[in-house]
């Protein structure tokens, strides 16, 4: 699979402060790539470098296999976290202006805007002024303007902020739709549940450095540690559990339940689920036995904590 974007040892300093320190990333074509990290980790700087708003002190960025060129901005759509519209301009006029800045002709921009305005059900806002719009409305227009020129690479920085859950879902579906149509998407956010839902790949930035990247599934596999969540009904809670505890690593505090109905986590020494299940079934009837896979959020918190601990 080709990479739409490759960053090679990109370094950027502001004064004496590193914003990015030798960050290397490969973003595969036609996927949703999550760019994660705490505030101030360097995400926005990296995104601004990709958009050629700022330039790296050293290192290089390849777009579609060759070094990033000024005209590539026509192939990139960027929805910044700090976004807004001219307040006193009319909605349609403003969308046309922004689309033309991206290189669309006026008539083409008009045609596509009409399509999108109808699609997101804001057609009757064309002649209104932006200051009359609700925040969610304005966000929809910004989303449209970002994707209107059908760029190969889309960069969304916190795209769901300012949306109510219903509209956030509409936008999420649109993002998936765009990916299905062939776009590559960089997705920067703090909202981990949306990362889980959307991202195929992630990279984690922390203190200007990349500390983790790869396929989300692979990373999760690395981070799981044979922990299982068990729900079972014991015939005799006390003796049964004591028995299990002497053989397996069960956190006492994690045991919840009454009248023999128990809910606990167990960490097995190896992948030996067969023996544990056999042992368990002799003293209890098992309702549920599920491997606990760490969430992106868990991984995020754990890696950052580990890094800080060092």
């Amino acid at each position: 699979m080709n990479n739409i974007l490759v960053a090679q040892e990109v370094t950027k300093k502001f004064g004496n402060q590193y914003a990015l320190n030798k960050v290397s990333l490969s973003i595969p074509e036609n996927c949703i790539y999550g760019l994660l990290g705490p505030n101030g980790a360097g995400k926005t700087t990296l995104i601004r470098i990709i958009n050629q708003i700022t330039f790296p002190d050293s290192g290089s960025v390849l777009f579609d296999g060759r070094p990033l060129r000024p005209q590539d901005i026509a192939s990139i759509g960027y929805l910044p976290e700090e976004r807004g519209l001219y307040k006193s301009m009319k909605v349609g006029e403003q969308a046309l202006y922004l689309a033309q800045l991206k290189g669309l002709t006026k008539s083409e921009a008009k045609k596509r805007l009409k399509y999108w305005f109808e699609r997101l059900e804001i057609g009757d806002w064309w002649n209104r002024k932006v200051q009359e719009l609700s925040k969610g409305m304005a966000q929809k227009i910004q989303f449209i303007v970002t994707v209107l020129h059908q760029p190969k690479l889309l960069i969304f920085d916190e795209p769901f902020s300012g949306f109510d859950p219903i509209n956030a879902n509409i936008i999420k579906d649109e993002i998936i739709n765009l990916k299905d149509q062939g776009a590559s998407i960089i997705f920067s956010t703090h909202r981990m549940e949306s990362v889980e839902e959307l991202c195929e790949y992630i990279a984690l930035l922390h203190n200007s450095e990349k500390i983790l990247d790869g396929k989300l599934d692979d990373i999760k596999k690395q981070y799981k540690n044979n922990t299982f969540e068990v729900i079972a009904d014991f015939e005799n809670t006390n003796t049964g559990l004591e028995n299990l505890k002497s053989h397996y690593n069960i956190g006492i505090d994690e045991i919840k339940g009454q009248n023999g109905h128990c809910h606990f986590n167990v960490r097995l020494p190896s992948d030996d689920t067969k023996r544990f299940l056999a042992d368990l079934s002799t003293i209890a009837s098992v309702n549920s036995f599920v491997e606990t896979v760490p969430s992106a959020s868990d991984i995020f918190i754990k890696t950052v904590k580990d890094k800080n601990g060092k």
């Binding site: 708003i53 960027y78 976004r83 807004g84 922004l98």
Partner: peptide, 13 residues
């Protein structure tokens, strides 16, 4: 109005 970053991702400052 925070439109600046939207604009300068299309044109040079």
């Amino acid at each position: 109005s925070r439109i600046i970053e939207v604009i300068i991702s299309s044109v040079k400052p």
